[in-house]
Design a protein around this nucleic acid. Structure first.
Lengths: 187, 187
DNA sequence: TCATAATTGTGATGTTTGTCACACTCGAAC
DNA sequence: GTTCGAGTGTGACAAACATCACAATTATGA
Protein backbone atom coordinates (compact mmCIF):
# COMPACT_ATOMS: atom_id res chain seq x y z
CA UNK A 1 0.00 0.00 0.00
CA UNK A 2 2.86 2.35 0.77
CA UNK A 3 4.33 1.38 -2.57
CA UNK A 4 1.12 2.38 -4.30
CA UNK A 5 1.30 5.90 -2.92
CA UNK A 6 5.01 6.13 -3.69
CA UNK A 7 4.59 5.01 -7.28
CA UNK A 8 1.66 7.37 -7.68
CA UNK A 9 3.66 10.39 -6.56
CA UNK A 10 6.69 9.31 -8.58
CA UNK A 11 4.63 9.41 -11.77
CA UNK A 12 4.97 13.17 -11.45
CA UNK A 13 7.92 13.72 -9.09
CA UNK A 14 10.98 11.49 -8.44
CA UNK A 15 11.60 10.78 -4.76
CA UNK A 16 14.41 9.48 -2.55
CA UNK A 17 13.63 6.88 0.11
CA UNK A 18 14.11 9.46 2.84
CA UNK A 19 11.77 11.88 1.19
CA UNK A 20 9.08 9.24 0.88
CA UNK A 21 9.48 8.24 4.50
CA UNK A 22 9.03 11.88 5.43
CA UNK A 23 5.97 12.17 3.21
CA UNK A 24 4.41 9.01 4.57
CA UNK A 25 4.70 10.28 8.14
CA UNK A 26 2.11 12.93 7.26
CA UNK A 27 -0.52 10.37 6.24
CA UNK A 28 -2.66 7.83 8.06
CA UNK A 29 -4.05 4.72 6.50
CA UNK A 30 -7.75 4.03 6.97
CA UNK A 31 -10.10 1.24 6.00
CA UNK A 32 -13.80 1.64 5.37
CA UNK A 33 -16.64 -0.68 4.50
CA UNK A 34 -19.32 -0.31 1.87
CA UNK A 35 -21.75 2.53 2.72
CA UNK A 36 -19.42 4.03 5.35
CA UNK A 37 -18.99 7.80 5.28
CA UNK A 38 -15.57 9.46 5.08
CA UNK A 39 -17.25 12.86 5.01
CA UNK A 40 -20.77 13.69 6.15
CA UNK A 41 -22.66 16.60 4.66
CA UNK A 42 -22.92 19.35 7.29
CA UNK A 43 -19.97 18.21 9.40
CA UNK A 44 -16.32 19.28 9.55
CA UNK A 45 -13.89 18.07 6.93
CA UNK A 46 -10.57 17.20 8.49
CA UNK A 47 -8.95 15.16 5.78
CA UNK A 48 -8.18 14.86 2.12
CA UNK A 49 -7.97 11.28 0.86
CA UNK A 50 -5.88 9.27 -1.56
CA UNK A 51 -7.74 6.12 -2.68
CA UNK A 52 -5.57 3.01 -2.57
CA UNK A 53 -8.36 0.60 -3.46
CA UNK A 54 -12.13 0.57 -3.58
CA UNK A 55 -14.60 3.13 -4.84
CA UNK A 56 -16.15 6.28 -3.41
CA UNK A 57 -18.81 8.74 -4.42
CA UNK A 58 -18.72 12.48 -3.74
CA UNK A 59 -22.39 13.26 -3.44
CA UNK A 60 -24.66 16.21 -2.75
CA UNK A 61 -28.06 15.52 -1.20
CA UNK A 62 -30.61 18.20 -2.02
CA UNK A 63 -33.62 19.29 0.02
CA UNK A 64 -35.92 16.94 -1.90
CA UNK A 65 -33.79 13.98 -0.85
CA UNK A 66 -32.30 13.46 -4.29
CA UNK A 67 -28.63 12.62 -4.52
CA UNK A 68 -26.36 14.23 -7.12
CA UNK A 69 -22.98 12.68 -7.76
CA UNK A 70 -20.29 15.28 -8.30
CA UNK A 71 -17.56 12.71 -8.73
CA UNK A 72 -16.62 9.08 -8.38
CA UNK A 73 -13.26 8.49 -6.70
CA UNK A 74 -11.45 5.35 -7.84
CA UNK A 75 -8.02 3.92 -7.26
CA UNK A 76 -5.28 6.58 -7.42
CA UNK A 77 -7.70 9.48 -7.03
CA UNK A 78 -7.48 12.29 -4.51
CA UNK A 79 -10.81 13.33 -3.10
CA UNK A 80 -12.44 15.47 -0.45
CA UNK A 81 -14.98 18.23 -0.16
CA UNK A 82 -12.18 20.56 -1.15
CA UNK A 83 -14.12 23.71 -0.46
CA UNK A 84 -14.85 22.68 3.12
CA UNK A 85 -11.37 21.21 3.57
CA UNK A 86 -9.41 24.25 2.46
CA UNK A 87 -11.71 26.88 3.87
CA UNK A 88 -12.47 24.97 7.07
CA UNK A 89 -16.21 25.16 6.67
CA UNK A 90 -18.93 22.54 7.01
CA UNK A 91 -19.15 19.92 4.29
CA UNK A 92 -21.57 20.68 1.49
CA UNK A 93 -21.20 17.14 0.17
CA UNK A 94 -20.73 13.66 1.52
CA UNK A 95 -17.94 11.25 0.61
CA UNK A 96 -19.24 7.71 0.89
CA UNK A 97 -18.04 4.20 0.05
CA UNK A 98 -19.63 2.34 -2.84
CA UNK A 99 -17.26 -0.56 -2.13
CA UNK A 100 -14.97 -1.47 0.75
CA UNK A 101 -12.21 1.09 0.45
CA UNK A 102 -8.66 1.74 1.69
CA UNK A 103 -7.36 5.30 1.74
CA UNK A 104 -4.44 7.41 2.92
CA UNK A 105 -5.69 10.49 4.72
CA UNK A 106 -3.90 13.78 5.30
CA UNK A 107 -4.99 16.66 7.53
CA UNK A 108 -4.95 20.24 6.26
CA UNK A 109 -2.09 21.12 8.62
CA UNK A 110 -0.02 18.26 7.31
CA UNK A 111 -0.96 19.15 3.75
CA UNK A 112 0.33 22.68 4.27
CA UNK A 113 3.36 21.54 6.25
CA UNK A 114 4.30 19.03 3.58
CA UNK A 115 3.82 21.59 0.79
CA UNK A 116 6.19 24.08 2.37
CA UNK A 117 8.79 21.80 3.98
CA UNK A 118 9.15 19.65 0.88
CA UNK A 119 8.74 21.92 -2.16
CA UNK A 120 8.55 18.88 -4.41
CA UNK A 121 5.28 17.98 -2.74
CA UNK A 122 4.05 21.53 -3.14
CA UNK A 123 4.61 21.17 -6.83
CA UNK A 124 3.00 17.71 -6.78
CA UNK A 125 -0.15 19.06 -5.13
CA UNK A 126 -0.17 21.98 -7.55
CA UNK A 127 -0.09 19.65 -10.52
CA UNK A 128 -2.81 17.47 -9.03
CA UNK A 129 -4.98 20.48 -8.34
CA UNK A 130 -4.53 21.76 -11.89
CA UNK A 131 -5.49 18.35 -13.25
CA UNK A 132 -8.57 18.34 -11.04
CA UNK A 133 -9.55 21.78 -12.29
CA UNK A 134 -9.10 20.64 -15.90
CA UNK A 135 -11.18 17.52 -15.32
CA UNK A 136 -13.99 19.60 -13.83
CA UNK A 137 -13.93 21.98 -16.78
CA UNK A 138 -14.22 19.05 -19.15
CA UNK A 139 -17.25 17.87 -17.24
CA UNK A 140 -18.80 21.34 -17.56
CA UNK A 141 -18.09 21.28 -21.28
CA UNK A 142 -19.82 17.94 -21.49
CA UNK A 143 -22.96 19.44 -19.91
CA UNK A 144 -22.83 22.41 -22.26
CA UNK A 145 -22.26 20.56 -25.50
CA UNK A 146 -23.92 17.18 -25.09
CA UNK A 147 -27.33 15.70 -24.43
CA UNK A 148 -27.98 12.77 -22.09
CA UNK A 149 -27.18 10.10 -24.67
CA UNK A 150 -23.87 11.68 -25.65
CA UNK A 151 -22.83 12.18 -22.04
CA UNK A 152 -23.68 8.54 -21.40
CA UNK A 153 -21.48 7.42 -24.29
CA UNK A 154 -18.62 9.65 -23.17
CA UNK A 155 -18.76 8.15 -19.70
CA UNK A 156 -18.91 4.65 -21.14
CA UNK A 157 -15.81 5.38 -23.20
CA UNK A 158 -13.90 7.08 -20.40
CA UNK A 159 -14.65 4.64 -17.57
CA UNK A 160 -15.91 1.35 -19.01
CA UNK A 161 -15.06 -0.39 -15.71
CA UNK A 162 -17.56 1.73 -13.83
CA UNK A 163 -20.54 0.08 -15.51
CA UNK A 164 -19.84 -3.23 -13.85
CA UNK A 165 -19.06 -1.72 -10.49
CA UNK A 166 -21.90 0.68 -9.73
CA UNK A 167 -25.70 0.52 -10.04
CA UNK A 168 -27.18 2.41 -12.98
CA UNK A 169 -29.07 4.67 -10.60
CA UNK A 170 -25.76 6.15 -9.48
CA UNK A 171 -24.54 6.59 -13.03
CA UNK A 172 -27.78 8.41 -13.78
CA UNK A 173 -27.28 10.82 -10.92
CA UNK A 174 -23.72 11.43 -12.10
CA UNK A 175 -24.90 12.14 -15.64
CA UNK A 176 -27.71 14.37 -14.45
CA UNK A 177 -30.62 12.35 -15.86
CA UNK A 178 -33.33 10.20 -14.32
CA UNK A 179 -32.61 6.47 -13.99
CA UNK A 180 -35.51 5.77 -16.35
CA UNK A 181 -34.02 7.91 -19.09
CA UNK A 182 -30.63 6.27 -18.63
CA UNK A 183 -32.25 2.87 -18.88
CA UNK A 184 -33.86 3.82 -22.18
CA UNK A 185 -30.60 5.21 -23.53
CA UNK A 186 -28.74 1.95 -23.09
CA UNK A 187 -31.30 -0.05 -25.05
CA UNK B 1 -1.67 48.25 -12.84
CA UNK B 2 1.32 46.79 -11.06
CA UNK B 3 -0.38 47.72 -7.82
CA UNK B 4 -3.46 45.77 -8.83
CA UNK B 5 -1.47 42.57 -9.26
CA UNK B 6 0.44 43.20 -6.06
CA UNK B 7 -2.69 43.76 -4.01
CA UNK B 8 -4.28 40.73 -5.60
CA UNK B 9 -1.42 38.44 -4.60
CA UNK B 10 -1.19 39.99 -1.16
CA UNK B 11 -4.78 39.05 -0.43
CA UNK B 12 -3.38 35.53 -0.02
CA UNK B 13 0.35 36.00 0.55
CA UNK B 14 2.23 38.97 2.07
CA UNK B 15 5.13 40.22 -0.08
CA UNK B 16 8.22 42.40 0.29
CA UNK B 17 8.97 45.01 -2.36
CA UNK B 18 11.90 42.95 -3.65
CA UNK B 19 9.77 39.86 -3.94
CA UNK B 20 7.15 41.70 -5.93
CA UNK B 21 9.76 43.18 -8.25
CA UNK B 22 11.07 39.66 -8.82
CA UNK B 23 7.54 38.37 -9.46
CA UNK B 24 6.73 41.20 -11.85
CA UNK B 25 9.79 40.43 -13.96
CA UNK B 26 8.12 37.15 -14.94
CA UNK B 27 5.06 38.85 -16.40
CA UNK B 28 4.35 40.98 -19.45
CA UNK B 29 1.53 43.44 -19.71
CA UNK B 30 -0.70 43.26 -22.77
CA UNK B 31 -3.63 45.26 -24.09
CA UNK B 32 -6.38 43.87 -26.27
CA UNK B 33 -9.43 45.30 -27.98
CA UNK B 34 -12.97 44.00 -28.05
CA UNK B 35 -13.22 40.77 -30.07
CA UNK B 36 -9.43 40.18 -30.05
CA UNK B 37 -8.26 36.66 -29.31
CA UNK B 38 -5.77 35.88 -26.54
CA UNK B 39 -6.06 32.17 -27.33
CA UNK B 40 -7.33 30.65 -30.56
CA UNK B 41 -8.89 27.20 -30.56
CA UNK B 42 -6.48 24.79 -32.29
CA UNK B 43 -3.34 26.83 -31.71
CA UNK B 44 -0.60 26.74 -29.09
CA UNK B 45 -1.21 28.22 -25.66
CA UNK B 46 1.85 30.05 -24.44
CA UNK B 47 0.43 32.10 -21.63
CA UNK B 48 -1.76 32.18 -18.60
CA UNK B 49 -3.41 35.55 -17.97
CA UNK B 50 -4.32 37.72 -15.01
CA UNK B 51 -7.10 40.16 -15.91
CA UNK B 52 -6.39 43.72 -14.74
CA UNK B 53 -9.44 45.25 -16.40
CA UNK B 54 -11.99 44.33 -19.04
CA UNK B 55 -13.85 41.11 -19.68
CA UNK B 56 -13.04 37.84 -21.47
CA UNK B 57 -14.89 34.71 -22.43
CA UNK B 58 -13.40 31.22 -22.42
CA UNK B 59 -15.37 29.59 -25.19
CA UNK B 60 -15.59 26.26 -26.99
CA UNK B 61 -16.88 26.26 -30.56
CA UNK B 62 -18.44 22.94 -31.54
CA UNK B 63 -18.64 21.37 -34.99
CA UNK B 64 -22.11 22.83 -35.59
CA UNK B 65 -20.72 26.33 -35.10
CA UNK B 66 -22.36 26.81 -31.72
CA UNK B 67 -20.37 28.52 -29.01
CA UNK B 68 -20.35 27.25 -25.43
CA UNK B 69 -19.01 29.52 -22.72
CA UNK B 70 -16.99 27.64 -20.13
CA UNK B 71 -16.19 30.73 -18.15
CA UNK B 72 -16.24 34.50 -18.09
CA UNK B 73 -12.99 36.09 -16.88
CA UNK B 74 -13.42 39.39 -15.12
CA UNK B 75 -11.15 41.71 -13.20
CA UNK B 76 -8.82 39.80 -10.84
CA UNK B 77 -9.36 36.46 -12.55
CA UNK B 78 -6.71 34.08 -13.82
CA UNK B 79 -7.61 32.41 -17.08
CA UNK B 80 -6.21 30.26 -19.85
CA UNK B 81 -6.97 26.99 -21.59
CA UNK B 82 -5.28 25.33 -18.64
CA UNK B 83 -5.25 21.89 -20.18
CA UNK B 84 -3.40 23.10 -23.27
CA UNK B 85 -1.20 25.43 -21.22
CA UNK B 86 0.03 22.86 -18.72
CA UNK B 87 0.20 19.91 -21.07
CA UNK B 88 1.53 21.94 -24.00
CA UNK B 89 -1.12 20.78 -26.41
CA UNK B 90 -3.29 22.66 -28.88
CA UNK B 91 -6.03 24.84 -27.46
CA UNK B 92 -9.44 23.19 -27.19
CA UNK B 93 -11.03 26.54 -26.39
CA UNK B 94 -10.61 30.18 -27.35
CA UNK B 95 -10.07 33.08 -24.99
CA UNK B 96 -11.60 36.20 -26.48
CA UNK B 97 -12.32 39.77 -25.41
CA UNK B 98 -15.88 40.84 -24.75
CA UNK B 99 -14.56 44.29 -23.85
CA UNK B 100 -11.23 46.08 -24.26
CA UNK B 101 -9.00 44.27 -21.81
CA UNK B 102 -5.66 44.64 -20.04
CA UNK B 103 -3.88 41.54 -18.75
CA UNK B 104 -0.63 40.36 -17.25
CA UNK B 105 0.64 37.28 -19.07
CA UNK B 106 3.03 34.62 -17.83
CA UNK B 107 4.65 31.83 -19.84
CA UNK B 108 4.65 28.25 -18.54
CA UNK B 109 8.43 28.37 -18.02
CA UNK B 110 8.11 31.49 -15.92
CA UNK B 111 5.16 30.02 -14.06
CA UNK B 112 7.25 27.00 -13.12
CA UNK B 113 10.36 29.06 -12.42
CA UNK B 114 8.42 31.40 -10.18
CA UNK B 115 6.73 28.52 -8.35
CA UNK B 116 10.04 26.87 -7.46
CA UNK B 117 12.30 29.88 -6.94
CA UNK B 118 9.78 31.70 -4.79
CA UNK B 119 7.91 29.08 -2.74
CA UNK B 120 5.40 31.72 -1.65
CA UNK B 121 4.26 31.97 -5.24
CA UNK B 122 4.06 28.20 -5.50
CA UNK B 123 1.69 28.27 -2.60
CA UNK B 124 -0.19 31.21 -4.15
CA UNK B 125 -0.70 29.33 -7.40
CA UNK B 126 -1.74 26.24 -5.45
CA UNK B 127 -4.41 28.18 -3.60
CA UNK B 128 -5.63 29.77 -6.82
CA UNK B 129 -5.81 26.40 -8.51
CA UNK B 130 -7.73 24.91 -5.63
CA UNK B 131 -10.18 27.80 -5.76
CA UNK B 132 -10.60 27.27 -9.49
CA UNK B 133 -11.29 23.60 -8.94
CA UNK B 134 -13.86 24.41 -6.28
CA UNK B 135 -15.58 26.97 -8.53
CA UNK B 136 -15.82 24.43 -11.34
CA UNK B 137 -17.30 21.83 -9.01
CA UNK B 138 -19.93 24.33 -7.92
CA UNK B 139 -20.82 24.92 -11.54
CA UNK B 140 -21.17 21.15 -12.05
CA UNK B 141 -23.41 20.98 -9.00
CA UNK B 142 -25.52 23.74 -10.46
CA UNK B 143 -26.04 21.69 -13.63
CA UNK B 144 -26.90 18.59 -11.60
CA UNK B 145 -29.34 20.16 -9.18
CA UNK B 146 -30.96 23.03 -11.03
CA UNK B 147 -33.04 23.67 -14.09
CA UNK B 148 -32.53 26.56 -16.49
CA UNK B 149 -34.55 29.04 -14.44
CA UNK B 150 -32.72 28.24 -11.22
CA UNK B 151 -29.31 28.42 -12.89
CA UNK B 152 -30.32 31.78 -14.31
CA UNK B 153 -31.26 33.09 -10.89
CA UNK B 154 -28.05 31.78 -9.32
CA UNK B 155 -26.01 33.59 -11.97
CA UNK B 156 -28.03 36.77 -11.48
CA UNK B 157 -27.32 36.60 -7.78
CA UNK B 158 -23.63 35.75 -8.10
CA UNK B 159 -22.69 38.22 -10.85
CA UNK B 160 -25.37 40.89 -11.11
CA UNK B 161 -22.90 43.16 -12.95
CA UNK B 162 -22.61 40.71 -15.82
CA UNK B 163 -26.14 41.35 -16.98
CA UNK B 164 -25.34 44.92 -17.93
CA UNK B 165 -22.03 44.04 -19.55
CA UNK B 166 -22.74 41.11 -21.86
CA UNK B 167 -25.48 40.31 -24.41
CA UNK B 168 -28.08 37.80 -23.26
CA UNK B 169 -27.03 35.43 -26.02
CA UNK B 170 -23.69 34.94 -24.25
CA UNK B 171 -25.34 34.41 -20.88
CA UNK B 172 -27.52 31.77 -22.50
CA UNK B 173 -24.53 29.88 -23.85
CA UNK B 174 -22.93 30.06 -20.40
CA UNK B 175 -26.06 28.68 -18.76
CA UNK B 176 -26.45 25.95 -21.36
CA UNK B 177 -29.84 27.05 -22.69
CA UNK B 178 -31.02 28.60 -25.94
CA UNK B 179 -31.29 32.38 -26.06
CA UNK B 180 -35.05 32.03 -26.62
CA UNK B 181 -35.48 30.04 -23.42
CA UNK B 182 -33.38 32.54 -21.47
CA UNK B 183 -35.50 35.36 -22.86
CA UNK B 184 -38.67 33.63 -21.66
CA UNK B 185 -37.16 32.99 -18.21
CA UNK B 186 -36.50 36.65 -17.55
CA UNK B 187 -40.10 37.67 -18.27
C1' DT C 1 -33.34 -21.79 1.56
C1' DC C 2 -36.40 -18.38 1.82
C1' DA C 3 -37.82 -13.76 2.44
C1' DT C 4 -36.90 -9.25 1.56
C1' DA C 5 -34.83 -5.41 -0.46
C1' DA C 6 -32.39 -3.40 -4.24
C1' DT C 7 -32.02 -2.91 -9.03
C1' DT C 8 -33.71 -2.56 -13.58
C1' DG C 9 -36.89 -2.20 -17.66
C1' DT C 10 -40.89 -0.19 -19.81
C1' DG C 11 -45.41 2.06 -20.80
C1' DA C 12 -48.26 6.35 -20.34
C1' DT C 13 -48.32 11.06 -19.75
C1' DG C 14 -46.86 15.85 -18.69
C1' DT C 15 -43.27 19.38 -18.45
C1' DT C 16 -39.25 21.58 -20.01
C1' DT C 17 -36.52 23.07 -23.48
C1' DG C 18 -34.96 23.50 -28.42
C1' DT C 19 -35.83 24.99 -33.11
C1' DC C 20 -37.72 27.78 -36.65
C1' DA C 21 -39.90 31.89 -38.06
C1' DC C 22 -40.73 36.61 -37.84
C1' DA C 23 -41.03 41.33 -35.96
C1' DC C 24 -39.18 45.03 -33.31
C1' DT C 25 -35.63 48.09 -31.19
C1' DC C 26 -31.44 50.34 -31.04
C1' DG C 27 -26.91 51.91 -31.93
C1' DA C 28 -22.95 52.29 -35.28
C1' DA C 29 -21.13 53.40 -39.75
C1' DC C 30 -21.49 55.72 -43.89
C1' DG D 1 -30.75 60.83 -41.93
C1' DT D 2 -30.51 56.38 -43.72
C1' DT D 3 -28.98 51.80 -43.70
C1' DC D 4 -27.44 47.86 -41.75
C1' DG D 5 -26.70 44.45 -38.42
C1' DA D 6 -26.62 42.92 -33.68
C1' DG D 7 -29.52 42.06 -30.01
C1' DT D 8 -33.96 40.81 -28.33
C1' DG D 9 -38.92 39.12 -27.64
C1' DT D 10 -42.51 35.87 -28.83
C1' DG D 11 -45.62 32.43 -31.14
C1' DA D 12 -46.05 27.60 -32.95
C1' DC D 13 -44.46 23.25 -33.01
C1' DA D 14 -41.20 19.27 -32.16
C1' DA D 15 -37.90 16.81 -29.41
C1' DA D 16 -35.85 15.60 -25.06
C1' DC D 17 -36.48 14.40 -20.65
C1' DA D 18 -38.96 13.76 -16.01
C1' DT D 19 -42.38 11.59 -13.38
C1' DC D 20 -45.47 8.03 -11.96
C1' DA D 21 -46.82 3.36 -12.02
C1' DC D 22 -45.99 -1.38 -12.14
C1' DA D 23 -43.69 -5.71 -13.34
C1' DA D 24 -39.65 -8.55 -13.55
C1' DT D 25 -35.18 -9.74 -12.13
C1' DT D 26 -31.32 -10.01 -9.23
C1' DA D 27 -28.71 -9.69 -5.03
C1' DT D 28 -28.45 -10.22 0.00
C1' DG D 29 -28.85 -11.59 4.60
C1' DA D 30 -31.05 -14.12 8.43
Amino acid sequence: MKEKLKEHIEKLIPLTEDEFTFILSHFSIEKYKKNDFLIQQGENVNYCYYVVSGLLKLVFNDKDGKQHIVSFAMEDWWESDFSAYFMQTKAKMSLQCIENTIVFSISLKNYQKLSTELPKMGSFFLKKSNLGHIASQNRILSFLTSNAKERYEQLLKQYPLLFQRVPKTLLASYLGVSRETLSRLSS
